[in-house]
Design a protein around this nucleic acid. Structure first.
Lengths: 132, 132
DNA sequence: GTATCTGCAAAACATTTGCAATTCT
DNA sequence: AGAATTGCAAATGTTTTGCAGATAC
């Protein structure tokens, strides 16, 4: 927890209790949780927690570029603490989202058809190994 | 317009006036419009048009697999009539979304890390050639 | 003590649903 | 007439905003 505190401070973020807990949660739950999932889980430890604080905190983290948001599915934002580019796979059966370790071509930094690329996201969908 | 009518019929879709106009709009506006954009444009020609009809129609088209929806950005669904897999580039300056003709590896049909892939989306972001 | 952070309640959006009126054949 | 379609109004779900109270330095 002290490591997390130091990390947040080093990124210019005031390490409040809620912020520490939310960032710790993202580090420990690498399944790209939604705000609702984060709230329902952390609520057990922090009964006074509100969703507003989770929204505020995630928006702050994203602005400071220590997390990323994924809009894989309509009407559902998901969050992850891994900011390195990597592909995502969403299972249409169980709904789980997996990180893929397989390397795909890195396009960031290149110029394609005249457009300068600064960010890339590869989303795959299908049926995961558990649901096959 | 008669070609569009025949196409809708061939896909099992009753070609009402609104459906014809909405599909024609998507064919003519390949900038991945939102429901709001479609509504604001078509409203001028069809003053009685409602957003509900646009939602109904787009959902029907998507279900019949003659269009695709893109959730590139949070809280904003975009639609396109091109159902072939291709990459998208979104300009963070002007907000426009471009189709890229450059070929990227086709992953659909493959199995990656045990997951069977049936759909793929590559989203790039950055600064487009007009905004550079 | 002053600035920041939290969290309630309300607002703002996009999308869906229920249903009555309209249209088409 | 009968079935499908349209579109209004209300409901739903997610995210944002306003603001008063709590917390931290």
């Amino acid at each position: 927890m002290d490591g997390i505190r130091r990390y947040l401070v080093s990124e210019g973020i005031n390490p409040s209790y809620q912020r520490l807990k939310i960032f710790e949660y993202l580090l420990q739950h690498k399944v790209h949780p939604t705000v609702d999932t984060i709230y329902n889980d952390l609520y057990k430890q922090i009964p006074t927690l509100s969703k507003t604080t989770i929204y505020n905190t995630l928006n702050l983290f994203e602005q400071k570029e220590i997390i990323k948001s994924l809009s894989i599915e309509k009407n559902e934002l998901r969050y992850e603490s891994d900011t390195e580019p990597h592909a995502h796979f969403k299972c249409n059966e169980c709904g789980d989202v997996y990180d893929l370790s397989k390397e795909f071509p890195l396009i960031i930094g290149k110029t394609i058809e005249g457009h300068r690329v600064t960010d890339q996201q590869l989303y795959l969908q299908g049926v995961c190994k558990n649901c096959s």
